[in-house]
Design a protein around this nucleic acid. Sequence first.
DNA 1: CTTTCATTCCTAGCAGCGCTAGAAGTAGCC
DNA 2: GGCTACTTCTAGCGCTGCTAGGAATGAAAG
Lengths: 192, 192
Amino acid sequence: MSIKERRERERAERERLIVTAARELAEAEGWDAVTTRRLAAEIEYSQPVLYSHFKGKDAIMVAVAVQGFAEMAGELRAAGTSAPGPREALAAVAEAYAAFADRRPALYDAMFVRAVDLPFATPEAPAALREAFASLHRVIEPLAGDEDPDALTETFWSGLHGLITLMRSGRLRRESHDRRLALLIGHFSPPA
Amino acid sequence: MSIKERRERERAERERLIVTAARELAEAEGWDAVTTRRLAAEIEYSQPVLYSHFKGKDAIMVAVAVQGFAEMAGELRAAGTSAPGPREALAAVAEAYAAFADRRPALYDAMFVRAVDLPFATPEAPAALREAFASLHRVIEPLAGDEDPDALTETFWSGLHGLITLMRSGRLRRESHDRRLALLIGHFSPPA
DNA sequence: CTTTCATTCCTAGCAGCGCTAGAAGTAGCC
DNA sequence: GGCTACTTCTAGCGCTGCTAGGAATGAAAG
């Protein structure tokens, strides 16, 4: 049995290598630069090897996205707990979200813009994704009043996502990002 | 001179034909189906003809997007004027925006998701685009209070855009769209 | 009416893409 | 050492956006 185990270990190792290479290539040059040929060269195997691990290029992007969810969940969680009041907590999590998107644009793309073969608003969604959403939910809920906390969280999230994607595509000026973010936060916080 | 004029007229006609064909193909089957070969076949000319009118495929998408801005501007303007109060006006325009995006997903994509070779937050932006934005601005301004109306409009717009894109990519459940939209509107309206 | 010339347009092809069939090589087992 | 099963590679398919170079067209000149 030990031979088989070793092989499975090596296989898993190579799978990690693929995901890491894809992520690094995407972060360095964008997802358009991540072609199956480039990726194969990077891991020093031939192209078809990729397809013995993943169904296709999209599946590789999904794997990268899942890594991203885990990281984001950690950062949002940290941001949410170290705040004095509910209003500050919301601001901290929102800013952490925006900072993550800004620091890891390619990762954010894989998570929220490109890959779609991923269950989102269901219990089958990846645990890390549900956890990241929960961090948002946790800081929204105390401010929900008589409103539906789930829908409110989704709405606030949409606001963040819109700010980020429109800014990144050059449709919103970067200079006024902080002002817009503050406005969004303000409009989802109690009236002072 | 008349011969040259006739030719220019025919050329302009063919250019319209290209844009229309691209738009119809995109709306029927999505932008992935709009290949230069498909498009050339649709207008019954060879591929290179497209490149004598447009720099590339992206430029064709930009032309389609500009058409979209004009239509959206008209619809938003109409929605904004036929409302009794400022709160209702905001709701009407927001719903018109969401309805447009829902009815013409491919067009919305060209306008706000894909094509990027287009000046946005500057005076050089297409007139129709600035007009569409102005319709949003017009209904936000009365509700701005002491806040910056420009930044507030951009923030509200981001909220709409986020709702739409996240829903369309399957990341938000369609059933609760109305509830989210109402929450967004409510949080940018006076406290009752 | 024919020839010249400029313009328009098409055929053919390049380099790249995601993906896959089938051959070649490698490793474990008897 | 020889057989078997698995792994990995080479080669290629059909597609993409885009372009060079030649063929056809039609207006102007003799």
